[in-house]
Amino acid sequence: MKEITYRDALREALVEEMQRDETVFILGEDVGRYWGGAFKVTKGLAEEFGDERVRDTPISESAIVGAAVGAAITGMRPIVEIMFGDLTTLAMDQIVNQAAKIHYMFGGQASVPLVIRTPFGGGVNIAAHHSQSLEAWFMHVPGLLVAAPSTPYDAKGLLKTAIRNNNPVFFCEHKLLYPFKGSIPEEDYTIPFGSARVVREGEDITIVATMFMVHEALSAADTLKKEGLSAEVLDPRTLVPLDKEALVASVKKTGRAVIVSEGCKTAGVTAEIAAVIAEEAIDYLDAPLVRVAEPDTPIPFSPPLEKAVIPNKDTIIKAVRNIA
């Protein structure tokens, strides 16, 4: 095992998959040798693989994703970096109407082995256009797979699976997690999609959390432990497919669930997970489901304002206390 950051884990996955398969290439704004990606995930890759395979693009999100779709259906395995998740809005037609539909709409004649990597999440005071968490939008599009890793181990293993997958994968990263350290094995590994991880075992309540919220949930569980409450923390790791069995199994055990995610509450990630639990495990619930998410507001700039809308350890603890 070795200690590595989330950023470096992602980079290792890219390097290893580019070494493994010549058809894998990267395109995006400032991903090349002069910048190495806005969050430095692709730093050094142009030097190793050349400017043809690590391509800087103009600021043209729609054409970046569109070109990746065109390349994917003609024998290549492109990886797109969209600098901020908020900017995927500029490429929505290509993601939703093209990439996601091609396999089905053309009767299975083509697959679209495309990965779109992008960072979501708030917490760094860059306001309404650079802080959103829009994962739920992509869960709503049949044909897309959606990964949302919370640790370096998951980031590397899921990204490798994403690159090898023949379907378009929307790969959510989190900007607060890039410097976050964790251990990963020295040897090659992948993580299958649709397999949640019990990050911490517990008996009294299930906290389902995604991405950066997994770490807030763990902090909350530490505090709750001191009060004698044993919380299980479950990370779905992929939102599509969602590991329903793991959700149901945990709720069967604890009888209570708090669901935590960044992103707006209405029709958000927490809404879908809550609906799954309600549909498939309501008989096991001893208390109402509670959701912790962002209120339905844009992300504000000023630090106290931003802090007020993003879920954290304290809001999770408060939610747990409501039902346990």
């Binding site: 729609s62 070109a67 779709v69 065109g70 994917a72 259906i73 290509q94």
Partner: peptide
């Protein structure tokens, strides 16, 4: 853009 990608 899809045709551009095929060209790429």
């Amino acid at each position: 853009p899809i045709a551009t990608g095929a060209g790429l």
